[in-house]
Simulated assay, not measured.
Amino acid sequence: MELLMTNLSHHNSSIHSVEFGWINDFMEDNRTNSTAGEGNSLDCVQILIPQELFLTLGLISLVENILVVLAIVKNRNLHSPMYYFICCLAVSDMLVSVSNVVETMFMLLHDHGLLDVHPGMLRHLDNVIDVMICSSVVSSLSFLCTIAADRYITIFYALRYHSIMTTQRAVAIIVVVWLASITSSILFILYHTDNAVIVCLVTFFCTTLVFNAVLYLHMFFLAHGHSRRIKAFNKGRRQYTSMKGAITLTILLGVFILCWGPFFLHLILMLACPTSPFCNCFFRNFNLFLILIICNSLIDPLIYAYRSQELRKTLKELVLCSWFLGV
Rank of each mutant, 00 (worst) to 15 (best):
G37D: 00
N30H: 06
R31G: 01
I23T: 05
G39R: 14
S41V: 05
N24F: 15
G21V: 10
C44R: 06
G39P: 00
S17T: 06
G21N: 03
I15R: 12
S17I: 02
W22G: 08
T35Q: 00
R31S: 01
V45P: 00
S17R: 02
H16Q: 05
F26E: 00
G37A: 01
N40K: 09
S34T: 09
T35L: 07
N33E: 15
G39F: 09
N40A: 15
S17L: 02
N40G: 00
V18W: 01
I15F: 03
S13C: 05
I23H: 05
S13R: 11
W22T: 05
H16G: 08
D43I: 01
D29P: 01
S14K: 04
R31P: 01
V18I: 13
E19L: 08
V18H: 11
V18L: 15
E28V: 04
E19D: 11
I23C: 09
F26T: 11
N33M: 12
L42R: 09
E28S: 03
E28M: 05
D25H: 08
A36H: 15
V45A: 02
G39D: 07
S17N: 08
C44E: 07
F26D: 02
G37E: 03
M27W: 06
A36F: 09
L42G: 03
S34Q: 06
G37M: 00
D43F: 01
D43M: 03
G37Q: 01
N40W: 08
F20M: 14
G39K: 15
V18R: 09
N40P: 00
D25Y: 14
G37P: 01
I15E: 12
W22R: 12
E19G: 15
H16V: 13
I15D: 14
D43Q: 05
E38Y: 06
N40T: 09
A36R: 11
L42C: 06
N24T: 06
E38N: 15
E19N: 12
N24L: 03
V18M: 05
N24G: 13
C44L: 04
G39M: 11
S41W: 02
D25F: 07
N40C: 08
N24W: 12
M27V: 10
W22V: 06
N24K: 10
